[in-house]
Design a protein around this nucleic acid. Structure first.
Lengths: 115, 115
DNA sequence: ATAATATACCTCAGCTTCTTATGTATGTAA
DNA sequence: TTACATACATAAGAAGCTGAGGTATATTAT
């Protein structure tokens, strides 16, 4: 019963969005950034993150670049052109989903707030 | 590539919320209600719905009641007391998740809108 | 008549995505 | 020297979904 049982499927969107803003990030950095942005509410586990990154790379949405920093290897990810297109698409999908959820959960609410 | 790849985990919340408002619903009715409320955006498949209903019943959150309507059998579901408590809990969880997502997706947004 | 669609329940194989545990390796603080 | 932080990775198992299939009745269209 972890805190986030709802992330299913939105991890990819989170990754793509963060890379749209940051140009270049490595895995561990992503986990920390998400923790920071959500005040610890959402914790990306490494077991979920790394396979997700590998999959996005295999799909051609991300490219990698290895860097040495203090005897430590960092694998930086950045968006490809396909990846850049996919961000908008994924964000629109998420927005549509949230709005639909609002209509179910919050009936009698006309204006589209948030997002 | 279905329209709703994001429902994962929120189906239970949808069911509980609809039953909070409607007192008593049967499976097929739920699929139609969701389709109606979301203008066809979210389509609950029966292969997802029925197992979810059975699970919620097994957990003691729902009770069932069979009714005959025009030679057709309907299985009505309604919330138990535990189910009623769980609705608030699940809704709060969903709200927290959506707000967290907003902080990631929509940085530089202070007020908590929607939901 | 009959074919198609709508209503109404159900199960199950297979897929994706997650959790949890485990492994490797380095740097720093107690 | 023990623990924690940094940094990568894999893999078993669980959970939740899709899509296909099955049963049955009622209605609508051809």
């Amino acid at each position: 019963m972890s805190s986030n049982a709802l992330i299913k499927g939105s991890l990819q969107t989170i990754i793509l969005k963060l890379l749209e803003e940051n140009e270049k990030m490595y895995g561990y950095e992503i986990t920390q950034k998400v923790k920071e942005l959500t005040a610890g509410e959402i914790k990306i586990t490494e077991g979920a993150l790394y396979p997700a990154l590998h999959k996005l790379e295999a799909e051609g949405l991300l490219t990698t670049e290895i860097q040495q920093v203090d005897n430590r290897v960092r694998k930086y990810y950045s968006l490809t052109k396909d990846g850049q297109k996919e961000v908008s698409s994924k964000l629109a999908e998420l927005q549509a989903f949230v709005e639909s959820m609002q209509r179910i959960i919050n009936p009698g609410l006309k204006p589209e707030l948030g997002f």
